[in-house]
């Protein structure tokens, strides 16, 4: 045991914890179900089904197998595969996030390079930033008149702030020596921005992006519960209305997995642009 690497020992420990948690969960649920099944009276009266019990992990696993083996089926508006629902959510997140990148990075450069622009925009940022993205929803629905675009707008507004502030911070913190290198090489402002300031500030900018994508993924679930129609948030809510807790638990897990993957992508990008001084 001592000879194993830290990673291996940690992996074993994780696996043991998973097995224990699933085991306890499984046992707790089946006891409960058996206990209920004992009273024949209840079954006869149809009371046993009355309280939908939390499903055991084995049921969730069966559900997962079922869903993941055919993730993209489409049987009408209320019955789409988990893959389709996730694709809807991801595309909304990426559209809103993409728009936020287009706004936040150039604006962040401006704020970071010009103290005047920073001071002028700061009050707006300070007031707008603490607003919960969902608070924008009614206004967005009223102005945009389209549920899908409103959800994208909400994603945009929640992911723009961390990127904007991090870009400004990163750009403002670029060492004057590096800017002087660009100046002594007679680089124009665009070339300086692209070949010196952008790579110098890239780690900070990507940190902002990583925070943004995490928040966007948190917010999309809530936004879709509100606007309905499609997406993983709507799916969770719909399954809850159907009292299908197995699907609810399964989709919660999928939300976690996708969030983790999105974070991993940005983590990899972040590592790629990080440099040691």
């Amino acid at each position: 045991m001592q000879s194993l690497s830290v990673n291996k020992r940690a992996a074993i420990l994780s696996f043991v914890m998973l097995v224990v948690i699933l085991g306890v969960w499984e046992i707790a649920i089946t006891r409960q179900v058996i206990g209920e099944a004992l009273t024949e009276y209840e079954i006869l009266m149809g009371l046993g089904q009355q309280r939908s019990a939390i499903p055991p992990p084995s049921d969730v696993m069966v559900k997962a197998w079922e869903q993941l083996s055919n993730p993209f089926y489409d049987a009408g508006p209320n019955d789409k595969g988990i893959g389709i629902q996730l694709a809807y959510s991801i595309s909304r997140v990426l559209s809103g996030f993409g728009l936020a990148v287009l706004v936040a990075i150039p604006l962040g450069f401006l704020i970071g390079m010009s103290p005047v622009a920073y001071k002028a925009l700061n009050p707006f940022i300070q007031v707008l930033r603490p607003i919960s993205p969902l608070a924008w929803m009614p206004l967005a629905l009223f102005i945009i008149q389209d549920a899908n675009s409103s959800a994208i707008f909400v994603i945009f507004i929640c992911s723009v702030w961390p990127m904007l502030l991090n870009t400004a911070f990163g750009v403002a913190g670029v060492r004057t020596d590096w800017v002087n290198v660009a100046r002594t090489h007679e680089l124009g402002s665009l070339r300086t921005a692209l070949t010196v300031i952008l790579p110098a500030a890239a780690p900070t900018i990507l940190t902002g992006m990583r925070i943004s994508i995490g928040i966007a993924w948190l917010v999309i679930v809530a936004a879709e519960m509100l606007v309905g129609g499609t997406g993983i948030g709507y799916y969770v809510w719909n399954e809850w209305n159907n009292l299908d807790l197995t699907s609810v638990i399964f989709s919660i897990l999928m939300i976690g997995v996708v969030g983790m993957l999105l974070d991993a992508v940005f983590g990899t990008l972040q590592r790629a642009v990080t440099y040691a001084e």
Partner: peptide, 18 residues
């Protein structure tokens, strides 16, 4: 203003670390 005709070696190298 700065010019390519005047090369500078700065006190602290000033290499671009990336």
């Amino acid at each position: 203003g700065p010019s390519l005709d005047r090369g500078v070696v700065f006190q602290n190298y000033s290499l671009l670390p990336w």
